[in-house]
Amino acid sequence: MSSDFAIDLSAHEMLRRAHVLDAVGPDWDPGEALRGEQEAYALLYSGLDADQQRVYAELVAAGVLPGRGDGHAAP
């Protein structure tokens, strides 16, 4: 015996999105948020010494960390 069971969550998803937009507020700028994240990422991996740079490159090559531009951390 087989029965199909389906739940439509589209109304719940719309409510969830409304709550997210309400939480971030009217002044939220997604482009600025992305730029801020990119700047923080660049700072996080800046100033690595040679050994740290080697480990960073290995982690990028292994797919653990995302690659950036030329594959090197920011100077």
Rank of each mutant, 00 (worst) to 15 (best):
G36V: 02
L21H: 12
A62M: 15
H72V: 06
G25L: 04
Q38M: 12
L15R: 09
V24A: 02
A6M: 05
Q38G: 06
D22W: 04
D22V: 01
S10H: 01
A23Q: 03
R35T: 02
E39P: 00
L59Y: 05
R35A: 07
W28G: 02
R17T: 04
A11N: 04
L43N: 15
E39S: 12
A50Q: 14
D29A: 10
L15V: 06
F5G: 03
A50N: 08
R68A: 11
E39G: 08
D51C: 08
G71R: 06
V64R: 13
Q52H: 13
D27M: 01
S2T: 12
E13Q: 10
D4V: 03
V60A: 13
L59K: 07
G69M: 13
L9P: 00
G69I: 13
W28K: 10
E58V: 05
V60N: 04
D8N: 09
L43V: 13
D49M: 10
D8M: 00
A6Y: 03
Q38Y: 08
A73C: 14
F5W: 08
L43H: 12
V24M: 02
D49V: 08
H72W: 07
L15H: 06
G69Y: 09
H19G: 11
A33S: 10
V60C: 15
G69D: 15
V60F: 04
R16W: 05
V55S: 12
A33D: 10
D49S: 11
W28F: 15
L44T: 14
H19D: 10
A50S: 15
A11P: 01
M14T: 12
S10R: 08
D22K: 05
Y45A: 02
G63F: 09
P26Q: 11
V55M: 14
R68C: 02
G71D: 10
Y56M: 13
A40D: 05
L9A: 09
D29T: 03
D51Q: 15
D27W: 00
Y45M: 04
Q52F: 04
A57Y: 00
A50G: 07
E37P: 00
G67V: 07
I7Q: 05
P66S: 07
Y56T: 02
R68L: 12
F5M: 11
F5T: 12
L59V: 03
A57N: 05
I7L: 12
G36L: 06
Q53S: 14
E32Q: 12
E13P: 00
A23N: 01
A62P: 08
R17H: 02
R16N: 11
L59P: 01
A74C: 05
